[in-house]
């Protein structure tokens, strides 16, 4: 499932612009399905700086691990600690309660450059082949 209201990075993060330039970030359902049951995640500290395209954290399942890359650069404004205690929320609600971090985007252009949902859908289809 792909959330139409979000934008996407090629590394399978979704990003959604909220009021005040805040960008909410999570992992797409496709990425979560590929990983399997998530058992652990490592997320950045609130207040830290992240750069677009660089790893901000790691998500681990039993048989795989994936870096989570920052779809936009900026300051980490919030981290969803609830996910650590209930990783299955990623499966249940990837685009809602399964959000991972909120970033105060430094450059709005970085958000604009991300893929729209339709483009991401095609991108995923290509990857599956």
């Amino acid at each position: 499932m792909i959330d139409k209201a979000s934008r996407y990075a090629e590394t399978h993060e979704w990003a959604r612009l909220e009021d005040g330039g805040m960008v909410v970030v999570g992992l797409s359902s496709f990425a979560i399905e590929q990983l399997g049951d998530v058992v652990y995640m490592e997320l950045p500290a609130v207040g830290g700086e992240v750069t677009k395209g660089e790893a901000l954290g790691v998500v681990e399942s039993v048989k795989a691990a994936a870096d989570v890359y920052a779809p936009v650069g900026g300051k980490v404004a919030a981290v969803n600690d609830a996910v650590q205690g209930d990783p299955d929320v990623l499966k249940r609600d990837a685009y809602g309660a399964g959000w991972l971090v909120k970033i105060e985007a430094a450059d709005p252009k970085e958000y604009e450059a991300l893929m729209l949902a339709d483009a991401y859908e095609k991108f995923v289809q290509n990857q599956e082949q």
Partner: peptide
């Protein structure tokens, strides 16, 4: 075997 995602066969250069 547990916590295998730390290991070379999954994480390779990381």
């Amino acid at each position: 075997l547990t916590l295998q995602a730390r290991e070379q066969h999954i994480r390779r250069d990381k």
